[in-house]
Design a protein around this nucleic acid. Sequence first.
DNA 1: CATATATTTGTAATTACTACAATTTTGATT
DNA 2: AATCAAAATTGTAGTAATTACAAATATATG
Lengths: 133, 133
Amino acid sequence: MNSTQQYLTIHGIKPSVQRLAIMEYLLKHRTHPTADEIYTVLLPDMPTLSKTTVYNTLKLFVQHGVALYVDIDERNARFDGEMKTHAHFRCKKCGCIIDVPLPDMQSLLPDRPDFFIDEAYINVKGLCKACKL
Amino acid sequence: MNSTQQYLTIHGIKPSVQRLAIMEYLLKHRTHPTADEIYTVLLPDMPTLSKTTVYNTLKLFVQHGVALYVDIDERNARFDGEMKTHAHFRCKKCGCIIDVPLPDMQSLLPDRPDFFIDEAYINVKGLCKACKL
DNA sequence: CATATATTTGTAATTACTACAATTTTGATT
DNA sequence: AATCAAAATTGTAGTAATTACAAATATATG
């Protein structure tokens, strides 16, 4: 059993071939891919793969805490296999998405009696180095 | 000329009847409405209003800096007339969206040589008081 | 092996949003 | 007031991401 299999199993996900391929894609490519991107790249090696499976699997991953739903692109949902706390930067010109380490998450969140926070998302936008030039 | 008219004019937007109605809706209702919500509420008093106009107008508002595109709801785009820096909380149960004042925005953003930030969005999720009980 | 359960697949439907062309309104000029 | 150009609005038709659902396939269990 390889480490991705273990990783899924530990999180209560049965490691089918499709799920393994999608999880490994997420872990290897830090580009915050869309469902369609994953589908298109995996299709040549898994000709029977269905787009529905990709969508189902990504939803399953988010529910089980092995992937992040990144809502930074107005057009499509993006997904991230990195689960350590971090923010996302998106270039307004080329659309690339870069991970941004976050120093102190807790101190930033206000303590309010009218709601109870358990997830936080920080999205920043601007121009990446290549596009700024 | 009322204050909303002035507000739009100052920001380079010609204050048509439709634009005024939409802007006033945004300023009066702090619910972060969807385009469809605005359309539905305004329709009875403006029977010829078109949904396209609502979409066009909201896009115009965002471009001219009198409205915020709030990307916190996976289903639809939401809009906010409050332009002072703040974060958004969304209840995962009832879906309500609450403004959250932000103490120190600048200090939180990392200084990196590989990109240049000019917009920042902070979305937090959890349960609101009513849903927590 | 047989049967139940879980997973995957493909198609059809949904729906937010946009493109676009026609119509209407506005505003300036005569 | 009439004319004309530019801007704004409207309605329809289209796009595209996502989901619903039922059939097919794979997997696990007795």
